[in-house]
Amino acid sequence: MTRPFQLDLRHIGNGCAVLAVTGDLDPATAPHLREQGQALLADGPVQLLLDMSRVDFCDSSGLSTVLGLWQQARAGGGSLGLVAVPDRLARLLRITATDTLITVHPAEDLDRLTTSATEPA
């Protein structure tokens, strides 16, 4: 069984935001991710990290949303990365070659990523 959809802002500050996604990313839930992601990116160059470790399912609408956020982040001078991607989502990213565009970080890199963002560029 999949978990109820949920978005948790795990960290924000110093130009980095970590948004944890739980449950299914599908046509019903993807708009919520788009909305919150866009709001986080709207404040200027932001390194947005999506913690995907608790994503049970992601279809083309979820992928479309992630790609849209990635484009918005790049256009604004920021970036978007995925953290702790489950196997199935990793296959989807590979099939669609999205992993050649969007950086996928292992779970253990999360601490380093959020602290390094605090260092001056």
Binding site: L63, S64, L67, Q71, R94, T96, A97, T98, T100, L101
Partner: peptide, 14 residues
Amino acid sequence: LPGAMLVGALPDAR
């Protein structure tokens, strides 16, 4: 087909 991207998502898709 490794590296084959989504169609219509990006201008420089491969």
